[in-house]
């Protein structure tokens, strides 16, 4: 397992795609939180800091995509063949990927949520806008960002193992996040459940920020992380079963 983990870490470190994704999203989150904190009028009774830091939720989106890429990329570039030849037991192979990508997600989530907080709070203070956030609460947001990003990467790996086609997996992830969940959220009654138990609502709850719409009823942070972990676990179990039985033809 040590060999597998080291190989997986090396795969991650030597693939430019992940570094470019991370750099792009970090820049986007930094610029987005700076612009919003510096210019938004903050109406509607939501905590200003919480609504700005919702931008850091992009970290979870990119982790979901990166997790899916880490599996689908193996199929797309056919590197799954040598990987399975060296390690014929495919579940440990997937487990190593899960551990490495989730750990990377945790570090990345902590870093960018921390960065967004470090940008937002001073800017709000300079405009004399009460952030509505204690130091402990800010720390909880950063910790939640780390946990939610790690779980998003795990979920992405599960999705990638089920849908090995790279375009198919990415389109599924983005359509779920940006089309299905927002639209289903408008359905009377049932919509509130989507806002609460959908990925966006769970990630927002886990990071103590605001969901979509900002007035959505969310779970508590602990409960949201448990539900997210349950989703990831369920999808990963299906993904591992699919991977075990799949013919590797290319």
């Amino acid at each position: 397992m040590t060999h597998l983990l080291r190989a997986e870490a090396l795969r991650l470190a030597t693939t430019r795609t992940y570094w470019l994704l991370a750099a792009g999203v970090t820049a986007l989150i930094a610029a987005g939180s700076a612009a919003t904190a510096a210019a938004s009028s903050f109406t509607g009774g939501v905590s200003p800091a919480r609504s700005v830091l919702a931008i850091a939720g992009l970290a979870q989106t990119v982790a979901l995509v990166a997790g899916a890429l880490s599996v689908t990329g193996e199929f797309r570039h056919k590197t799954i063949t040598p990987a399975v030849l060296i390690t014929p037991r495919r579940t440990p192979l997937l487990a190593a990927k899960l551990i490495v990508m989730a750990a990377a997600g945790l570090v990345f989530g902590l870093a960018v949520t921390g960065l967004a907080t470090a940008i937002t709070l001073p800017l709000l203070a300079a405009r004399h806008i009460p952030a509505g956030l204690s130091g402990t609460q800010a720390a909880a947001i950063v910790a939640g960002g780390g946990a939610a990003t790690a779980l998003a990467a795990a979920l992405g790996i599960g999705i990638g193992a089920i849908i090995r086609n790279q375009v198919g997996a990415i389109v599924t992830v983005l359509a779920l996040l940006y089309v299905a969940e927002p639209l289903l959220g408008f359905i009377p009654h049932a919509g509130t459940a989507v806002q609460k138990y959908g990925l966006d609502g769970l990630a927002a709850a886990a990071t103590h920020t605001t969901g979509f719409p900002a007035t959505a009823q969310l779970l508590g942070p602990g409960a949201a992380i448990v539900v997210l972990a349950a989703y990831a676990g369920a999808v990963l179990s299906v993904g591992a079963a699919v991977l075990r039985h799949r013919d590797i033809t290319a």
Binding site: A7, T14, T15, G73, K78, T79, T81, A83, I86, T87
Partner: peptide
């Protein structure tokens, strides 16, 4: 089985390092 089974964004040396490490 396939001479082209490698990630295009990874150098040849790194490709071999990954597989060696895994083994």
């Amino acid at each position: 089985l396939d001479a082209a089974a490698a990630h295009p964004g990874r150098s040849g040396r790194d490709h071999l390092r990954v597989l060696a490490t895994q083994a």
